[in-house]
Write a protein that binds this DNA or RNA. Structure first.
Lengths: 228, 228
DNA sequence: TTCATAGTTCGATCGTAACCGAAGCATCGC
DNA sequence: GCGATGCTTCGGTTACGATCGAACTATGAA
Protein backbone atom coordinates (compact mmCIF):
# COMPACT_ATOMS: atom_id res chain seq x y z
CA UNK A 1 0.00 0.00 0.00
CA UNK A 2 0.92 3.64 -0.30
CA UNK A 3 2.89 3.01 -3.42
CA UNK A 4 3.55 5.80 -5.83
CA UNK A 5 2.17 9.25 -6.27
CA UNK A 6 -1.00 10.51 -4.72
CA UNK A 7 -3.83 10.20 -7.15
CA UNK A 8 -6.50 10.93 -4.60
CA UNK A 9 -5.58 14.58 -4.23
CA UNK A 10 -6.07 15.49 -7.85
CA UNK A 11 -9.00 13.15 -8.11
CA UNK A 12 -10.68 15.01 -5.30
CA UNK A 13 -9.86 18.33 -6.91
CA UNK A 14 -11.56 17.29 -10.12
CA UNK A 15 -14.24 15.41 -8.23
CA UNK A 16 -16.32 18.39 -7.27
CA UNK A 17 -18.94 19.30 -9.87
CA UNK A 18 -18.36 23.02 -9.64
CA UNK A 19 -14.61 22.63 -10.00
CA UNK A 20 -14.99 20.14 -12.82
CA UNK A 21 -17.17 22.57 -14.73
CA UNK A 22 -14.65 25.33 -14.26
CA UNK A 23 -11.80 23.14 -15.43
CA UNK A 24 -13.77 21.98 -18.44
CA UNK A 25 -14.50 25.57 -19.34
CA UNK A 26 -10.83 26.43 -19.07
CA UNK A 27 -10.01 23.62 -21.47
CA UNK A 28 -11.13 26.16 -24.02
CA UNK A 29 -7.71 27.72 -23.57
CA UNK A 30 -9.14 31.15 -22.95
CA UNK A 31 -8.39 32.85 -19.67
CA UNK A 32 -11.50 33.46 -17.61
CA UNK A 33 -12.20 35.70 -14.65
CA UNK A 34 -13.39 34.47 -11.29
CA UNK A 35 -16.90 35.78 -11.89
CA UNK A 36 -17.16 34.08 -15.24
CA UNK A 37 -15.98 30.83 -13.70
CA UNK A 38 -18.49 31.19 -10.92
CA UNK A 39 -21.11 31.37 -13.65
CA UNK A 40 -20.08 28.16 -15.37
CA UNK A 41 -19.79 26.47 -12.00
CA UNK A 42 -23.25 27.54 -10.99
CA UNK A 43 -22.10 28.99 -7.69
CA UNK A 44 -21.56 32.37 -6.10
CA UNK A 45 -18.32 34.27 -6.40
CA UNK A 46 -17.34 33.62 -2.81
CA UNK A 47 -17.54 29.89 -3.27
CA UNK A 48 -15.81 30.07 -6.61
CA UNK A 49 -12.98 31.98 -5.00
CA UNK A 50 -12.25 29.24 -2.51
CA UNK A 51 -12.49 26.61 -5.22
CA UNK A 52 -10.08 28.50 -7.43
CA UNK A 53 -7.65 28.89 -4.56
CA UNK A 54 -7.70 25.15 -4.00
CA UNK A 55 -7.14 24.42 -7.65
CA UNK A 56 -4.25 26.82 -7.67
CA UNK A 57 -2.40 25.35 -4.72
CA UNK A 58 -3.12 21.97 -6.27
CA UNK A 59 -1.14 23.09 -9.29
CA UNK A 60 -3.95 22.83 -11.79
CA UNK A 61 -4.47 26.54 -12.30
CA UNK A 62 -2.48 29.71 -12.53
CA UNK A 63 -3.82 33.20 -12.15
CA UNK A 64 -2.70 36.46 -13.57
CA UNK A 65 -3.79 39.79 -12.17
CA UNK A 66 -4.77 42.40 -14.65
CA UNK A 67 -6.40 45.51 -13.36
CA UNK A 68 -9.12 44.52 -11.00
CA UNK A 69 -9.65 41.24 -12.76
CA UNK A 70 -7.98 37.94 -12.11
CA UNK A 71 -7.62 35.77 -15.12
CA UNK A 72 -7.39 32.06 -14.53
CA UNK A 73 -5.92 29.54 -16.93
CA UNK A 74 -4.95 25.92 -16.76
CA UNK A 75 -1.45 25.63 -15.35
CA UNK A 76 -0.03 24.02 -18.47
CA UNK A 77 -0.78 21.70 -21.32
CA UNK A 78 -0.44 18.62 -19.14
CA UNK A 79 -3.50 19.67 -17.18
CA UNK A 80 -5.43 20.14 -20.39
CA UNK A 81 -4.41 16.71 -21.55
CA UNK A 82 -5.48 15.18 -18.26
CA UNK A 83 -8.88 16.81 -18.40
CA UNK A 84 -9.45 15.84 -22.01
CA UNK A 85 -8.38 12.28 -21.35
CA UNK A 86 -10.77 12.06 -18.44
CA UNK A 87 -13.50 13.43 -20.67
CA UNK A 88 -12.73 10.77 -23.24
CA UNK A 89 -12.84 8.13 -20.58
CA UNK A 90 -16.09 9.40 -19.12
CA UNK A 91 -17.68 9.64 -22.55
CA UNK A 92 -16.70 6.04 -23.25
CA UNK A 93 -18.43 4.91 -20.07
CA UNK A 94 -21.60 6.76 -20.80
CA UNK A 95 -21.00 9.12 -17.90
CA UNK A 96 -22.76 11.80 -19.81
CA UNK A 97 -24.58 14.60 -18.18
CA UNK A 98 -27.15 14.70 -20.91
CA UNK A 99 -28.10 11.97 -23.32
CA UNK A 100 -25.43 11.54 -25.92
CA UNK A 101 -27.46 12.91 -28.81
CA UNK A 102 -26.29 15.87 -30.84
CA UNK A 103 -27.02 18.25 -28.03
CA UNK A 104 -24.62 20.95 -28.97
CA UNK A 105 -24.18 20.64 -32.72
CA UNK A 106 -21.78 23.55 -32.96
CA UNK A 107 -19.63 22.05 -30.25
CA UNK A 108 -19.43 18.75 -32.03
CA UNK A 109 -18.63 20.33 -35.36
CA UNK A 110 -15.65 22.41 -34.26
CA UNK A 111 -14.40 23.38 -30.87
CA UNK A 112 -11.18 24.38 -29.25
CA UNK A 113 -9.24 21.87 -27.22
CA UNK A 114 -6.82 23.93 -25.15
CA UNK A 115 -5.16 25.53 -28.16
CA UNK A 116 -5.97 23.42 -31.18
CA UNK A 117 -8.96 22.37 -33.24
CA UNK A 118 -11.13 19.47 -32.08
CA UNK A 119 -14.50 18.06 -32.96
CA UNK A 120 -15.64 16.91 -36.38
CA UNK A 121 -13.46 19.41 -38.20
CA UNK A 122 -10.41 18.56 -36.13
CA UNK A 123 -10.77 14.88 -36.94
CA UNK A 124 -11.35 15.65 -40.60
CA UNK A 125 -8.26 17.82 -40.79
CA UNK A 126 -5.99 15.13 -39.42
CA UNK A 127 -7.57 12.45 -41.62
CA UNK A 128 -7.01 14.57 -44.66
CA UNK A 129 -3.42 15.39 -43.75
CA UNK A 130 -2.70 11.70 -43.36
CA UNK A 131 -4.48 10.79 -46.58
CA UNK A 132 -2.50 13.36 -48.53
CA UNK A 133 0.76 12.06 -47.13
CA UNK A 134 1.57 15.21 -45.20
CA UNK A 135 1.51 13.43 -41.87
CA UNK A 136 2.48 9.89 -41.20
CA UNK A 137 0.74 7.91 -38.47
CA UNK A 138 2.99 5.43 -36.80
CA UNK A 139 1.43 3.48 -34.02
CA UNK A 140 -0.15 6.14 -31.89
CA UNK A 141 2.30 8.82 -32.92
CA UNK A 142 2.30 11.35 -35.69
CA UNK A 143 5.19 12.64 -37.76
CA UNK A 144 5.35 15.38 -40.36
CA UNK A 145 6.71 14.29 -43.73
CA UNK A 146 8.80 16.40 -46.08
CA UNK A 147 5.81 16.71 -48.37
CA UNK A 148 3.79 17.95 -45.44
CA UNK A 149 6.41 20.53 -44.62
CA UNK A 150 6.32 22.02 -48.11
CA UNK A 151 2.53 21.80 -48.29
CA UNK A 152 2.23 23.71 -45.07
CA UNK A 153 4.54 26.41 -46.34
CA UNK A 154 2.02 26.98 -49.12
CA UNK A 155 -0.62 27.95 -46.63
CA UNK A 156 1.75 30.18 -44.75
CA UNK A 157 3.04 27.98 -41.94
CA UNK A 158 6.77 27.70 -41.57
CA UNK A 159 7.46 24.59 -39.59
CA UNK A 160 10.97 25.75 -38.83
CA UNK A 161 9.53 28.43 -36.60
CA UNK A 162 7.72 25.87 -34.51
CA UNK A 163 10.35 23.27 -33.82
CA UNK A 164 12.27 25.35 -31.33
CA UNK A 165 10.31 24.64 -28.19
CA UNK A 166 10.40 21.41 -26.24
CA UNK A 167 6.79 20.82 -27.11
CA UNK A 168 6.31 18.14 -29.74
CA UNK A 169 5.39 19.31 -33.22
CA UNK A 170 2.68 16.75 -33.79
CA UNK A 171 0.70 15.10 -31.09
CA UNK A 172 -2.45 13.11 -31.41
CA UNK A 173 -5.25 14.00 -29.05
CA UNK A 174 -8.31 11.85 -28.51
CA UNK A 175 -11.63 13.49 -28.99
CA UNK A 176 -14.46 12.77 -26.58
CA UNK A 177 -17.21 13.59 -29.05
CA UNK A 178 -15.77 11.82 -32.06
CA UNK A 179 -13.71 9.21 -30.21
CA UNK A 180 -11.12 9.67 -32.90
CA UNK A 181 -7.75 11.34 -32.96
CA UNK A 182 -7.14 14.88 -33.99
CA UNK A 183 -4.01 16.97 -34.31
CA UNK A 184 -2.53 18.64 -31.26
CA UNK A 185 1.01 19.85 -30.58
CA UNK A 186 2.54 23.08 -31.76
CA UNK A 187 1.52 22.36 -35.33
CA UNK A 188 -2.10 21.88 -34.33
CA UNK A 189 -1.94 25.18 -32.51
CA UNK A 190 -0.35 26.94 -35.45
CA UNK A 191 -2.99 25.66 -37.85
CA UNK A 192 -5.85 26.85 -35.69
CA UNK A 193 -4.21 30.22 -35.25
CA UNK A 194 -3.86 30.58 -39.00
CA UNK A 195 -7.56 29.86 -39.47
CA UNK A 196 -8.41 32.55 -36.98
CA UNK A 197 -5.92 34.95 -38.55
CA UNK A 198 -7.35 34.47 -42.00
CA UNK A 199 -10.80 35.19 -40.67
CA UNK A 200 -12.05 31.76 -41.62
CA UNK A 201 -13.27 31.14 -38.12
CA UNK A 202 -13.67 32.86 -34.81
CA UNK A 203 -13.97 31.83 -31.21
CA UNK A 204 -17.18 32.43 -29.37
CA UNK A 205 -17.38 34.33 -26.15
CA UNK A 206 -18.90 31.87 -23.74
CA UNK A 207 -18.59 28.46 -25.31
CA UNK A 208 -15.68 26.39 -26.51
CA UNK A 209 -17.16 26.08 -29.95
CA UNK A 210 -15.51 27.61 -32.99
CA UNK A 211 -17.66 29.22 -35.63
CA UNK A 212 -16.60 29.07 -39.25
CA UNK A 213 -17.70 31.77 -41.64
CA UNK A 214 -19.34 30.60 -44.88
CA UNK A 215 -16.21 31.53 -46.79
CA UNK A 216 -13.93 29.94 -44.17
CA UNK A 217 -16.01 26.83 -44.27
CA UNK A 218 -15.55 26.56 -48.03
CA UNK A 219 -11.83 27.13 -47.79
CA UNK A 220 -11.39 24.63 -44.99
CA UNK A 221 -13.31 21.90 -46.78
CA UNK A 222 -11.36 22.58 -49.97
CA UNK A 223 -8.03 22.49 -48.17
CA UNK A 224 -8.78 19.32 -46.26
CA UNK A 225 -10.81 17.09 -48.54
CA UNK A 226 -12.07 13.67 -47.62
CA UNK A 227 -11.87 11.26 -50.50
CA UNK A 228 -14.12 8.56 -49.22
CA UNK B 1 -21.73 25.37 -19.11
CA UNK B 2 -22.48 21.69 -18.72
CA UNK B 3 -20.72 20.84 -21.91
CA UNK B 4 -19.49 17.36 -22.53
CA UNK B 5 -19.10 14.30 -20.36
CA UNK B 6 -19.17 14.31 -16.61
CA UNK B 7 -15.66 14.37 -15.29
CA UNK B 8 -16.67 15.03 -11.73
CA UNK B 9 -18.16 11.58 -11.18
CA UNK B 10 -15.01 9.67 -11.94
CA UNK B 11 -12.91 12.33 -10.31
CA UNK B 12 -14.86 11.87 -7.11
CA UNK B 13 -14.55 8.10 -7.40
CA UNK B 14 -10.77 8.36 -7.59
CA UNK B 15 -10.70 11.25 -5.15
CA UNK B 16 -11.13 9.20 -2.00
CA UNK B 17 -7.81 8.00 -0.55
CA UNK B 18 -9.05 4.52 0.25
CA UNK B 19 -10.49 4.04 -3.22
CA UNK B 20 -7.39 5.50 -4.85
CA UNK B 21 -5.21 3.04 -2.99
CA UNK B 22 -7.37 0.15 -4.05
CA UNK B 23 -7.33 1.24 -7.67
CA UNK B 24 -3.58 1.70 -7.58
CA UNK B 25 -3.17 -1.78 -6.18
CA UNK B 26 -5.35 -3.20 -8.93
CA UNK B 27 -3.15 -1.52 -11.51
CA UNK B 28 -0.95 -4.50 -10.81
CA UNK B 29 -3.32 -6.44 -13.06
CA UNK B 30 -3.86 -9.13 -10.48
CA UNK B 31 -7.36 -9.79 -9.19
CA UNK B 32 -7.73 -9.06 -5.48
CA UNK B 33 -10.38 -10.02 -2.95
CA UNK B 34 -12.40 -7.55 -0.96
CA UNK B 35 -10.45 -8.28 2.21
CA UNK B 36 -7.13 -7.76 0.50
CA UNK B 37 -8.36 -4.49 -0.92
CA UNK B 38 -9.58 -3.42 2.48
CA UNK B 39 -6.00 -3.98 3.64
CA UNK B 40 -4.40 -1.80 1.01
CA UNK B 41 -7.04 0.84 1.61
CA UNK B 42 -6.43 0.84 5.33
CA UNK B 43 -10.10 0.38 6.14
CA UNK B 44 -12.42 -2.32 7.45
CA UNK B 45 -14.15 -4.79 5.17
CA UNK B 46 -17.53 -3.18 5.61
CA UNK B 47 -16.26 0.16 4.39
CA UNK B 48 -14.32 -1.48 1.60
CA UNK B 49 -17.46 -3.25 0.48
CA UNK B 50 -19.36 -0.03 0.00
CA UNK B 51 -16.39 1.53 -1.78
CA UNK B 52 -16.09 -1.41 -4.12
CA UNK B 53 -19.78 -1.28 -4.90
CA UNK B 54 -19.47 2.36 -5.83
CA UNK B 55 -16.48 1.71 -8.03
CA UNK B 56 -18.37 -1.06 -9.77
CA UNK B 57 -21.47 0.92 -10.59
CA UNK B 58 -19.11 3.66 -11.69
CA UNK B 59 -17.72 1.27 -14.27
CA UNK B 60 -14.18 1.21 -12.99
CA UNK B 61 -14.23 -2.28 -11.54
CA UNK B 62 -15.65 -5.67 -12.31
CA UNK B 63 -16.05 -8.51 -9.89
CA UNK B 64 -16.06 -12.24 -10.38
CA UNK B 65 -17.40 -14.64 -7.80
CA UNK B 66 -15.33 -17.69 -7.12
CA UNK B 67 -16.29 -19.82 -4.16
CA UNK B 68 -16.81 -17.58 -1.23
CA UNK B 69 -14.37 -15.02 -2.57
CA UNK B 70 -15.04 -12.10 -4.83
CA UNK B 71 -12.20 -11.12 -7.03
CA UNK B 72 -12.08 -7.56 -8.18
CA UNK B 73 -10.20 -6.30 -11.23
CA UNK B 74 -10.08 -3.08 -13.16
CA UNK B 75 -12.89 -3.01 -15.69
CA UNK B 76 -10.58 -2.83 -18.67
CA UNK B 77 -7.32 -1.45 -19.93
CA UNK B 78 -8.73 2.03 -20.34
CA UNK B 79 -9.13 2.28 -16.59
CA UNK B 80 -5.56 1.17 -16.09
CA UNK B 81 -4.36 3.78 -18.53
CA UNK B 82 -6.37 6.46 -16.77
CA UNK B 83 -4.92 5.57 -13.39
CA UNK B 84 -1.37 5.42 -14.68
CA UNK B 85 -1.76 8.71 -16.49
CA UNK B 86 -3.03 10.32 -13.33
CA UNK B 87 -0.08 8.87 -11.46
CA UNK B 88 2.26 10.33 -14.03
CA UNK B 89 0.56 13.67 -13.72
CA UNK B 90 0.61 13.62 -9.94
CA UNK B 91 4.26 12.61 -9.88
CA UNK B 92 5.10 15.50 -12.18
CA UNK B 93 3.44 17.93 -9.78
CA UNK B 94 5.25 16.62 -6.76
CA UNK B 95 2.02 15.24 -5.34
CA UNK B 96 3.97 12.46 -3.74
CA UNK B 97 2.88 10.75 -0.63
CA UNK B 98 6.41 10.23 0.51
CA UNK B 99 9.46 12.18 -0.50
CA UNK B 100 10.65 11.17 -3.92
CA UNK B 101 13.70 9.27 -2.73
CA UNK B 102 14.18 5.61 -3.55
CA UNK B 103 11.60 4.54 -1.05
CA UNK B 104 10.69 1.27 -2.66
CA UNK B 105 13.77 0.21 -4.57
CA UNK B 106 12.25 -3.01 -5.88
CA UNK B 107 9.23 -1.12 -7.15
CA UNK B 108 11.36 1.37 -8.97
CA UNK B 109 13.54 -1.30 -10.51
CA UNK B 110 10.79 -3.41 -12.05
CA UNK B 111 7.08 -3.47 -11.53
CA UNK B 112 3.99 -4.42 -13.42
CA UNK B 113 1.86 -1.77 -15.05
CA UNK B 114 -1.44 -3.52 -15.68
CA UNK B 115 0.08 -6.23 -17.89
CA UNK B 116 3.49 -5.05 -19.00
CA UNK B 117 6.85 -4.20 -17.51
CA UNK B 118 7.44 -0.77 -16.01
CA UNK B 119 10.05 0.86 -13.84
CA UNK B 120 13.77 1.05 -14.52
CA UNK B 121 13.83 -2.24 -16.38
CA UNK B 122 10.82 -1.33 -18.49
CA UNK B 123 12.44 1.91 -19.58
CA UNK B 124 15.72 0.14 -20.25
CA UNK B 125 14.03 -2.46 -22.40
CA UNK B 126 12.37 0.09 -24.63
CA UNK B 127 15.52 2.16 -24.89
CA UNK B 128 17.47 -0.88 -25.94
CA UNK B 129 14.87 -1.95 -28.48
CA UNK B 130 14.98 1.49 -30.03
CA UNK B 131 18.79 1.64 -30.01
CA UNK B 132 19.01 -1.73 -31.75
CA UNK B 133 16.58 -0.63 -34.42
CA UNK B 134 13.88 -3.08 -33.45
CA UNK B 135 11.42 -0.37 -32.62
CA UNK B 136 11.13 2.99 -34.23
CA UNK B 137 9.97 5.99 -32.24
CA UNK B 138 7.98 8.42 -34.32
CA UNK B 139 6.70 11.40 -32.49
CA UNK B 140 5.03 9.89 -29.49
CA UNK B 141 4.24 6.61 -31.18
CA UNK B 142 6.15 3.37 -31.50
CA UNK B 143 6.35 1.03 -34.45
CA UNK B 144 7.94 -2.36 -34.80
CA UNK B 145 10.47 -2.64 -37.63
CA UNK B 146 11.12 -5.70 -39.77
CA UNK B 147 14.39 -6.21 -37.96
CA UNK B 148 12.52 -6.12 -34.68
CA UNK B 149 10.06 -8.70 -35.89
CA UNK B 150 12.82 -11.16 -36.75
CA UNK B 151 14.76 -10.36 -33.57
CA UNK B 152 11.70 -11.08 -31.48
CA UNK B 153 11.19 -14.40 -33.21
CA UNK B 154 14.65 -15.36 -31.95
CA UNK B 155 13.48 -15.03 -28.36
CA UNK B 156 10.31 -16.93 -29.06
CA UNK B 157 7.77 -14.22 -29.73
CA UNK B 158 5.79 -14.48 -32.94
CA UNK B 159 4.42 -11.08 -33.69
CA UNK B 160 1.89 -12.54 -36.10
CA UNK B 161 0.07 -14.07 -33.19
CA UNK B 162 -0.39 -10.72 -31.53
CA UNK B 163 -1.64 -8.50 -34.33
CA UNK B 164 -5.08 -9.98 -34.44
CA UNK B 165 -6.77 -8.05 -31.68
CA UNK B 166 -7.82 -4.46 -31.93
CA UNK B 167 -5.31 -3.56 -29.29
CA UNK B 168 -2.26 -1.80 -30.70
CA UNK B 169 0.92 -3.81 -30.88
CA UNK B 170 3.19 -1.14 -29.49
CA UNK B 171 2.08 1.60 -27.20
CA UNK B 172 4.22 3.90 -25.18
CA UNK B 173 3.29 4.28 -21.55
CA UNK B 174 4.66 7.00 -19.34
CA UNK B 175 6.28 5.91 -16.16
CA UNK B 176 5.65 7.84 -12.98
CA UNK B 177 8.86 6.76 -11.28
CA UNK B 178 11.20 7.20 -14.22
CA UNK B 179 9.20 9.86 -16.06
CA UNK B 180 10.27 8.12 -19.23
CA UNK B 181 8.38 5.97 -21.69
CA UNK B 182 8.25 2.22 -21.57
CA UNK B 183 6.65 -0.36 -23.82
CA UNK B 184 2.98 -1.21 -23.43
CA UNK B 185 0.52 -2.75 -25.87
CA UNK B 186 0.18 -6.41 -26.73
CA UNK B 187 3.89 -6.67 -27.46
CA UNK B 188 4.77 -5.29 -24.05
CA UNK B 189 2.44 -7.81 -22.51
CA UNK B 190 3.90 -10.67 -24.53
CA UNK B 191 7.44 -9.76 -23.53
CA UNK B 192 6.63 -9.69 -19.85
CA UNK B 193 4.81 -13.00 -20.12
CA UNK B 194 7.81 -14.57 -21.79
CA UNK B 195 10.06 -13.40 -18.93
CA UNK B 196 7.73 -14.98 -16.43
CA UNK B 197 7.43 -18.14 -18.54
CA UNK B 198 11.17 -18.52 -18.77
CA UNK B 199 11.45 -18.19 -15.03
CA UNK B 200 13.56 -15.08 -15.32
CA UNK B 201 11.20 -13.18 -13.06
CA UNK B 202 8.16 -13.67 -10.90
CA UNK B 203 5.39 -11.53 -9.54
CA UNK B 204 5.17 -10.93 -5.85
CA UNK B 205 2.09 -11.63 -3.84
CA UNK B 206 1.25 -8.30 -2.31
CA UNK B 207 3.16 -5.69 -4.21
CA UNK B 208 3.27 -4.65 -7.83
CA UNK B 209 6.99 -5.21 -7.99
CA UNK B 210 8.51 -7.90 -10.15
CA UNK B 211 11.46 -9.85 -8.82
CA UNK B 212 14.15 -11.02 -11.21
CA UNK B 213 16.15 -14.11 -10.38
CA UNK B 214 19.93 -13.74 -10.55
CA UNK B 215 20.00 -15.75 -13.77
CA UNK B 216 17.02 -13.87 -15.20
CA UNK B 217 18.71 -10.63 -14.33
CA UNK B 218 21.80 -11.63 -16.29
CA UNK B 219 19.78 -12.74 -19.29
CA UNK B 220 17.67 -9.60 -19.29
CA UNK B 221 20.65 -7.28 -19.11
CA UNK B 222 22.40 -9.25 -21.86
CA UNK B 223 19.33 -9.16 -24.10
CA UNK B 224 18.68 -5.47 -23.62
CA UNK B 225 22.06 -3.76 -23.39
CA UNK B 226 22.54 -0.07 -22.95
CA UNK B 227 25.45 1.30 -24.94
CA UNK B 228 25.83 4.64 -23.31
C1' DT C 1 -25.65 -30.36 11.51
C1' DT C 2 -22.36 -26.91 13.35
C1' DC C 3 -18.64 -23.83 13.00
C1' DA C 4 -15.64 -20.72 10.41
C1' DT C 5 -14.64 -17.60 6.77
C1' DA C 6 -15.91 -14.02 3.19
C1' DG C 7 -18.79 -10.55 2.16
C1' DT C 8 -22.93 -7.40 2.28
C1' DT C 9 -26.44 -4.49 4.52
C1' DC C 10 -28.16 -1.65 8.23
C1' DG C 11 -27.88 2.07 11.54
C1' DA C 12 -25.71 5.62 13.77
C1' DT C 13 -21.83 8.71 14.44
C1' DC C 14 -18.72 12.00 13.05
C1' DG C 15 -15.81 15.18 10.14
C1' DT C 16 -15.17 17.63 6.55
C1' DA C 17 -16.13 20.49 2.91
C1' DA C 18 -19.37 23.02 0.10
C1' DC C 19 -22.11 26.88 0.45
C1' DC C 20 -23.64 31.64 1.14
C1' DG C 21 -24.25 36.36 3.72
C1' DA C 22 -21.65 39.93 5.26
C1' DA C 23 -17.64 42.44 5.72
C1' DG C 24 -13.04 43.75 4.06
C1' DC C 25 -9.46 44.99 0.29
C1' DA C 26 -8.08 46.49 -4.05
C1' DT C 27 -8.63 48.80 -8.41
C1' DC C 28 -10.96 51.54 -11.75
C1' DG C 29 -13.67 55.63 -13.33
C1' DC C 30 -15.17 59.91 -12.13
C1' DG D 1 -11.79 62.56 -2.76
C1' DC D 2 -16.21 59.37 -3.99
C1' DG D 3 -18.84 55.35 -5.46
C1' DA D 4 -18.83 51.12 -8.25
C1' DT D 5 -16.88 46.78 -9.51
C1' DG D 6 -14.10 42.45 -8.85
C1' DC D 7 -12.52 39.44 -5.69
C1' DT D 8 -11.09 37.51 -1.11
C1' DT D 9 -11.72 36.40 3.80
C1' DC D 10 -14.54 35.35 7.79
C1' DG D 11 -18.29 33.02 10.28
C1' DG D 12 -21.84 29.93 10.67
C1' DT D 13 -24.97 26.54 8.65
C1' DT D 14 -25.88 22.47 6.34
C1' DA D 15 -25.45 18.29 3.97
C1' DC D 16 -23.16 14.52 2.39
C1' DG D 17 -20.26 10.69 2.72
C1' DA D 18 -16.69 7.96 5.05
C1' DT D 19 -16.38 5.12 8.83
C1' DC D 20 -17.27 1.23 11.92
C1' DG D 21 -20.16 -2.05 15.10
C1' DA D 22 -23.54 -5.26 14.70
C1' DA D 23 -26.54 -8.18 12.37
C1' DC D 24 -27.39 -10.91 8.24
C1' DT D 25 -26.35 -14.03 3.94
C1' DA D 26 -23.58 -17.31 1.52
C1' DT D 27 -20.06 -20.63 0.78
C1' DG D 28 -16.95 -24.08 2.48
C1' DA D 29 -15.06 -27.37 5.93
C1' DA D 30 -15.65 -30.78 9.59
Amino acid sequence: MKEGPDIAQIGALIGDPARANMLAALTGGRALTATELAGVGGITVQTASTHLAKLEVGGLLTQRKQGRHRYFTLADEAVARLIESMMGFAAGRGHLRHRPGPKEPALRKARICYDHLAGDYGVRMLDSLIASGSIEAVGEGLALTEKGESDLKCIGIDVGDLGSSRRPLCRSCLDWSERRAHLAGSLGKALLLSFLDKGWARRTAESRSILFSPEGDRQFLRLFPIDA
